[in-house]
Design a binder for these strands. Structure first.
Lengths: 344, 344
DNA sequence: TTGAAAGCGTTACCAG
DNA sequence: CTGGTAACGCTTTCAA
């Protein structure tokens, strides 16, 4: 038999298709009563044939797929899969499947994920957007329809009114800058390696604001833009170190880049933190294992994923509820890669 | 309108549903002819309503979903997402969607992925199995049906006859051991951090065989079992270093663990490679950026994903073709974490 | 308790 | 070129 269908099970068990449906969907026993003997017979027949209901046909009828999507902008960033892990656990807990969609930081692929939401009737979608502004139109439409979509990351709520879960990067950046200023650092370089200008902007903004509030005039020369990979960060550090006077600290916009910074600094014959301090964001698992261990802003990655999924299920329950904007707390994790400014 | 359907588009354009189907599926122009003017009208109507065809209904009809699944046993292992990246690109190139399913190294979740293949009618499934033997029954069934399934990793082909793509860990392990032996190492510890006893076994076997072939009697004391996380590797190294005499080299079963080894060795006040050599497997992106840079076995992660997807499409084209077992080449990447045995 | 039949949104065939 | 109609596999009334 190529692929047994409900009718085959019914025939083998000698009952009607309706009865098979009742038993297999677990509805028998409640409102619908089915003889125990019949029930066993159906179960046995299904097992014998290796029958598996066709989810497509089921959802055509029911309108739900029990499938939730989540975009991953960069499979190479450990921070993302920590979030995805939390999302996956929360999704499974409800008996749904999580479908991870890699977007490689590309607009078309992000758009493709929205198309999957629509075409494949995903019951929900978690999105990390490289550049939300580009998706203006689509997001407006999703918002208007109260689609079960949650945006992860810093997001300009005025683009379209959607549920969001934002890591506390802003708060964390302030803590980190305060920490560095207290150690006497004034020439602090910021390594801005992201996919688009708007992404991670909140960390850069906070960098400027905190400096100014401390009476330090920011120097645009100290902002170094690079790509998202560790290798690109490594290359960018060469440029940073060539500046005179040399910065006394480098803040990378995430830990993935900070790892490249640590290595580049070591290769330049400088010591961390004696000659130069290094810090990152996210507190990925590996941050504790770099040499030296990395000072970084801990965000609650796992919980971010969980909360986002919770928002999806909330909206599924009540599609018209007002949108929610959740900002997760952050906490500076001071390790050994940051220290007093040299000569102090 | 809640969700426009084909009929709505047809009504707005003033044509029949069949015509809409022809135009939207791009079949118009060939065997079926549709007036250009009509065609434009339909496209305009679809755009105006924001019509998106229902993939569930389409695949109920066509029997295909244009969706391929891929399990990821451990989102925390960079090697995996390098493979997934390759798979994703290859999948997209064919206009299919790749659906990444996280399994957290758990049997039930791996089984769940197989269920998704069946229930959701995935057109193919890439599987990395924690313990293939456990899946004996399911795999046999899949093989019998010539299901479009590809197993990634070292796999005992006699369990069930399936397509496989295997990283060249065996060959790489031999190269690595030869390298260490040539450097004078005899007490080489092997850090075996995997989800189950069968996983990664080929590397351990090769370790034993190469030692014996070199006339070195393996010492079971030097095999240290741990979990899959960097933190667990870190803890395991404490135990390894307590051995007397202390090993002169530590081989970790993958780079993710090797990073924990590097850090633990540094924390113990030992220098790599002067006091102890360290090596790993996979050559993840980060391996070049550890301090010191890690000697490791490079496997062609991206290509592994690509080849696996190619096997899926091959089978889709010809379901009954014989199975293929592909082993990808490996290459030892000698960096600075390995050196001559101390005192030589 | 069970069977018959309608319908979910789509495609594809067959007459007009 | 277009409209009607029969599937695709399933769930769910409604009667019996």
């Amino acid at each position: 038999m190529e692929r047994p269908k409900q009718a085959d099970v019914a025939k083998l068990a000698g009952v009607s298709r309706a009865t098979v449906s009742y038993v297999l969907s677990g509805r028998a026993g409640g409102a619908i009563a089915v003889a125990d003997e019949t029930r066993e017979r159906i179960l046995a027949a299904a097992a014998e044939l290796g029958y598996v209901p066709d989810a497509g046909a089921q959802s055509l009828k029911s309108g739900v797929t029990r499938m939730i999507g989540a975009t991953c902008p960069d499979l190479g960033n450990p921070h993302m899969w920590e979030i995805l892990h939390g999302a996956d656990m929360a999704t499974r807990a409800q008996g749904y499947d999580l479908n991870i969609i890699s977007t490689h930081l590309q607009y078309e692929n992000e758009r493709g994920a929205i198309q999957q939401l629509l075409r494949r009737r995903l019951d929900g979608l978690l999105m990390t957007l490289t550049n939300a502004e580009q998706h203006h139109e689509d997001l407006k439409t999703l918002a208007r329809r109260h689609s079960p979509v949650v945006i992860l990351g810093d997001y300009d709520h005025t683009i379209a009114d959607l549920d969001t879960v934002t890591p506390g990067h802003r708060e964390g950046a302030a803590q980190l800058m305060t920490h560095l200023l207290a150690l006497g650092h004034r020439r602090i370089s910021f390594l801005y390696g992201v996919a688009s200008e708007s992404f991670g902007r909140e960390r850069l903004d906070t960098y400027f604001n905190t400096l100014r509030a401390a009476g330090v005039q920011p120097d645009d020369q100290l902002i170094e833009v690079c790509g998202v990979t560790t290798a690109q960060a490594y290359a960018a550090v060469q440029r940073i170190l060539a500046r005179t006077p040399r910065p006394t600290a480098i803040v990378a916009i995430n830990d993935q880049l900070a790892i490249g910074v640590l290595r580049a600094v070591a290769d330049a014959g400088l010591r961390v933190p004696d000659d130069i301090s290094v810090a990152g964001f996210d507190d990925i698992d590996l941050a504790r294992f770099t040499v030296p261990a990395l000072t970084t802003v801990k965000v609650m990655s796992d919980e971010i994923g969980q909360r986002a999924v919770a928002l999806i299920f909330d909206r599924l329950k009540d599609p018209n509820r007002p949108t929610q904007q959740i900002t997760m707390p952050a906490q500076l994790a001071i390790r050994v890669s940051t220290g007093p400014v040299p000569g102090r």
